[in-house]
Simulated scan of single mutants.
Amino acid sequence: MVAKRMALAVPRLHPNLADVYREEMACLRQGLAITDSGPEIKKAVSALIERVEVHPPAAT
């Protein structure tokens, strides 16, 4: 029963996910090499970032 639950918990990924990611990174690398890449490169970078977390420093 535990094995069945673990099997259900495994996320299903698109079979070509690695290829899609590799292609996106290649395009991003090319865009970053161009100094006048404009808003397209900003959009590509933003698509990679899900969220930004900022935590206050620990009190000492």
Rank of each mutant, 00 (worst) to 15 (best):
V10K: 06
V45F: 09
V52T: 14
L13M: 03
K43F: 09
L13H: 05
L13K: 02
G38H: 09
M1W: 03
K4T: 07
I34Q: 15
G31F: 00
A33F: 07
A47I: 08
P39D: 15
A3N: 01
H55K: 06
R29P: 00
T60C: 11
V54P: 08
G38M: 09
P56S: 05
E50A: 10
L17I: 10
R51H: 09
M6D: 01
L48R: 06
E53Q: 13
K43H: 13
R12F: 04
L8G: 06
A3E: 04
T60R: 13
E50S: 13
R29T: 13
A33C: 11
V20K: 06
A33D: 13
M6T: 05
L48C: 11
R51D: 07
M25D: 10
D36L: 06
A44F: 02
L28Q: 01
N16Y: 06
R12E: 07
A47G: 08
R12Y: 07
A47V: 09
S46H: 12
M1Q: 03
L13N: 03
N16K: 06
A26R: 07
E50N: 11
D36E: 15
A26T: 10
E53M: 10
A33S: 14
M1V: 02
A33V: 04
A47Y: 05
C27L: 15
A47F: 06
E24Q: 14
Y21F: 13
A18D: 01
R29Y: 10
E24V: 05
R51L: 12
E40S: 15
A9T: 05
N16G: 06
A59W: 01
L48N: 07
R22P: 03
N16H: 09
T35D: 10
R12Q: 10
A33G: 10
D19K: 02
M25Y: 12
Q30M: 15
M1R: 01
T35N: 08
K42S: 13
A33E: 14
A44Q: 04
V45L: 10
R12V: 04
R29A: 14
S37I: 03
R29S: 15
Q30A: 11
T35P: 00
Y21A: 04
L32P: 00
A59G: 03
A26E: 08
A47M: 12
V10G: 02
E23K: 13
M6S: 04
C27F: 14
E50L: 10
V45E: 05
P11W: 00
M25C: 15
A18V: 06
R12N: 11
R29I: 09
Q30D: 12
A58G: 14
D19E: 07
V20L: 04
I34Y: 12
L28H: 00
